[in-house]
Amino acid sequence: MYKVTCVIGTRPEAIKMAPLLRLMKSDERFSLTILSTGQHTDMLRQALHHFGIDADVKLNVMRERQSLEYLTSAVLQGVSNFLQKDPQDMLLVHGDTTTTFGAALAGFYRGVPIGHVEAGLRSHNMKLPFPEEANRVLTDRLSSLFFAPTPWAAENLLREGTDSSQVFVTGNTVIDALFWTLRHLTPSEILKEIPEEAPLILMTAHRRESWGAPLTRICGAIKEIIERHPEVRILLSLHKNPVVRETIFQELAE
């Protein structure tokens, strides 16, 4: 049986990896361990619960207002300690989070092959998105198998010299997660308060590059839409990051 550990730390990773985790859990060829770093503790738990999944190992690295330096080192040390105690045949990581890079680096140091789901995405600007572009580029440098969501992503990898025999175009797992959710969806109480005929905008805004003035401008745009189009309803999914919440509450409290 092939021992695989999937490392996840944030809500997006949980959502996008859930279809694969459910499939691997039911496949007798794999002995799957789900390791949660806890980069986003509550939001990660909520997303996993939605798909009927629980982590087997929990590092609980999250700290309030955690820095990238702290988070990277905590994930690196935590995953490395786990691999020392329980060696694996492969480590699966997803996307471009700090959990992704820290776990991949731990696997590399421990000599464990890395499989990168959602490999090959590029903005070709190491500062945008920050730090995600660096995370995904560096993770690809450390990986052995590359699961690209699109042919374009695969071409990025090939242009960078990746062996074509290691690159697989798989599609985007978030689509599988979407179809699963549609089959198991429970109507939201919030949506019941919105008239069916009302135009609805669903949005979120939390990326690190949007902190400060850009997020303030986004809030200004929200207010302008409401003023110009009072019939429109805007449903803002609010991230738990205190930097994001402080700005949005300050700008949209009225």
Rank of each mutant, 00 (worst) to 15 (best):
V169D: 05
M43R: 14
Y70D: 14
H229S: 09
R136C: 02
A14V: 03
V243R: 15
P199F: 07
E28I: 05
N156K: 03
P12S: 05
L200R: 15
E118G: 04
A14Y: 02
L182A: 10
W180C: 07
R65E: 15
A47H: 06
E132M: 08
R183Y: 00
L202W: 07
P149F: 01
L23S: 15
I53S: 07
P242V: 13
V244A: 07
I226V: 13
W211A: 10
Y70Q: 09
L157S: 07
C6N: 10
L35V: 08
L158H: 12
N156S: 05
T98N: 12
Y2V: 13
F168T: 05
A104D: 09
A14G: 09
S73A: 15
Q88G: 08
I53H: 03
H116L: 03
T99P: 01
A154L: 11
L157E: 08
K85M: 12
Q88K: 13
I175L: 13
A253L: 05
H229Q: 13
L71E: 12
L202Y: 12
G52E: 12
A18E: 08
L142W: 04
R136T: 02
L158Q: 15
D56I: 02
R159W: 09
S67K: 12
A177V: 01
A103L: 08
H124M: 11
P149C: 04
F168N: 03
A134D: 03
T99F: 00
E189G: 03
D163M: 04
A103W: 06
F51Q: 05
G120V: 01
D54S: 12
E160Q: 14
F108A: 14
F249M: 15
P113E: 00
T204E: 11
Q84N: 11
G9S: 09
V4W: 07
R207P: 07
M90I: 04
F130H: 11
Q46S: 13
I248C: 01
I226D: 07
I218E: 06
E69P: 05
T99L: 00
K85E: 14
V79A: 03
M203I: 14
K16Y: 07
T37F: 05
V232R: 06
G102V: 05
E193Y: 00
T10N: 01
R245A: 14
I194P: 03
D176R: 11
G161R: 11
P113L: 01
Y109L: 13
F146K: 01
D54Y: 01
I226R: 08
Q88P: 07
V232C: 12
K58G: 09
L59V: 13
F82M: 03
R217I: 12
A104Y: 06
E160D: 15
K3S: 11
G95F: 04
K58F: 10
P113C: 02
A205Y: 05
S31V: 05
T150Y: 00
T72M: 11
E227T: 12
D176E: 15
N172K: 02
N135D: 04
A106P: 00
